[in-house]
Amino acid sequence: MSVQPSTEFHPRWYRAPVSTYWWMGSWRYSLFILRELTSVAVAWSVVVTLLLLRSLLKGPDAYAHFTHRMQAPWMLALNIIAFCFLLLHTITWFNLAPRAMPVRVGGKRVPEFLVAAPNYVLWVVASAAIAWFVLRKS
């Protein structure tokens, strides 16, 4: 079902239009849009990963080409910006998750930072493990 806007049309009521640039109206709205745009950085990171996998599939020359391409200044700049957005995603995601999934122990709600903390631990451990696998000299 859908809720119809039920405010009957009244010619004398004033309705302020919503600006297309509403998200510049307050820094909180802007931060919200930035948070949503972190998804673009996420998608970009997947593209980089796919490029890496493709180069691995194609052979050493393609891999050398890939590493060379990653060193291009514009590519570096893009990746550094994207990395900042990824951090924003991780932080906002971990901090908001406890609100969506409240944890109760003994009938009392566990404080949000206590629910968020293990996420950060998991993040650090997982990152370290991945880095170890990639950097390990076999």
Partner: peptide
């Protein structure tokens, strides 16, 4: 919210 007068908004919706 639609404005009825000055600082008063319409709440029917």
């Amino acid at each position: 919210f639609p404005v009825i007068r000055d600082l008063v908004t319409a709440l029917s919706d």
